[in-house]
Amino acid sequence: MSMLNIEGLNVWFGRDRDRVDAVKGASFDVGTGESFGLVGESGSGKSTILRAITGLAPTWSGRITVDGRAVEKARPRAFYKQVQMVFQDPYASLHPRHSVDAVLAETLKLHGFTDIDARVAKLLDDVGLGQKFRFRYPHQLSGGQRQRVAIARALAPEPQLLLLDEPTSALDVSVQAEILNLLADLRQGHGLTFLMVSHDLSVVGHMCDRLAVMKDGEIVEVMDVAALRAMKATHPYSQHLLQASV
């Protein structure tokens, strides 16, 4: 059973002469409950795929299917109950004037929940923050704590598919370990499917079951993590990336 299927996805920005093709003919499939990684260097189009799935990059063609349903250009709110995203920079992804409570409560309200108080409390426990952080503002939180809030916000609508855009690249390594552990626990506890973008092969190797290597907007190779660990990449570019990161 496939949770996310991408076929012949093209994403571009700008028009006519200024047109930049960020993703060219990408196709891959993520099974339900699987954790799939997208790796590549900056500008390879890996984050753009996430933005196309969520509708943040509006100019795309091809087929995106989530849980058997084709995604239309205009996404209903129900879509966002199924698919959520965690952004790269926790310092930029939280509104500077909204407290943790306000962020979570608004999200829950938008998705039509009524038992908001109890749910905010539970979300904070789920991401390991606890109640004393509930009324803090972002500037009173560390990077790791902010990222936990961002994860709590993404979990609020109880999605099935979580898109992770370099969720730890802005964090210290010790905090990265905490967040990666948290994500692994949440995936197990909530039966989530992950699509994770990263430039760090060892992070993807740790978190994912399979991965796709991207270069200049194209997927050059899809492989198992076992193959990655055994350094058995077939495409020369993947081999090059592996060499550079060991």
């Binding site: 010790s174 370990a177 740790h206």
Partner: peptide
């Protein structure tokens, strides 16, 4: 030691990373 152990490594897969 804690910093070193909290890094994920390709050659030695682990279920959970050590937290500092």
């Amino acid at each position: 030691r804690g910093l070193l152990n909290s890094l994920p490594r390709l050659d030695t897969p682990r279920d959970r990373l050590d937290v500092l």
